[in-house]
Amino acid sequence: MSIGVSEVLQRCREENRAALVCYLPVGYPTVEGSVAAMVAMVEAGADIVEVGIPYSDPLMDGPVIAYAADQALKHGVRVDDAFRATRAVRDAGAPPLVMSYWNLILRHGAKQFATDLAEAGGAGIITPDLIPDEADDWIAASDETGLDRIFLVAPSSTEERIAAVTSQCRGFVYAVSHMGVTGARTSMGDAASVIVSRTKAVTDLPVCVGLGVSDGTQAAEVAAYADGVIVGSALVRCLTEAPDLESGLTALRALVADLAEGVRSGR
């Protein structure tokens, strides 16, 4: 069995640093190109890769990720392409997590999706619009396949919700840093550290923070209190703003290296 998310987070803990979790959507700018970009991120220092599956109605995503997903869909990306990206990330040496809106998994069949993902070397799934209360099928399928299931907590979550959600998580807990959609922020604010400490009060699971981190300085700031730093939009922007894939990959490697430096200098 290849290395899992828990082992990576444990290793980072032993190194007294936060893990770097990097997101890209499969299919942008092309399926080929996105797979190359994910592998490049692993080579440049990403500890865990989130393989995003583009969805027609991404209501938790800001303009950068929504644009890339829309382009990927227009170019014909399919759900099955995520399994291909998963294999590539696994071969590159990092655990791949799929991030997907629920209807795509539901349509595939939760059990079938879990089986196909495990077979491709996937480590688990992050479900931004699925709460544990609605997740009976996915909980059963993930137990059967041993996949990690990562639910989200938010600054608005009550103590009861945080306890209920974390009790169903495996791998880590995804703490949303602020109220809103994905996208880079100029400042992380206090909400992120507050939700991390509220979450750590009820669970021993690692807590990773997502939404808003765009550079090594912010990564270091979050790494001071979180077990992992999740970055998405800023990475996608490396590809959307580049004139071609090669220069996009160069920008991407540089940003991942900066972020990797950040998660090592926060404590």
Binding site: N103, F151, L152, R161, V165
Partner: peptide, 21 residues
């Protein structure tokens, strides 16, 4: 098992952040 269901239709498939609201 859950509120807000009509048979097996309905439910709450939204980000956790909206649940308190």
């Amino acid at each position: 098992a859950r509120p807000g269901r009509f048979g097996h239709f309905g439910g709450r498939f939204v980000p956790e952040a909206l649940i308190p609201a």
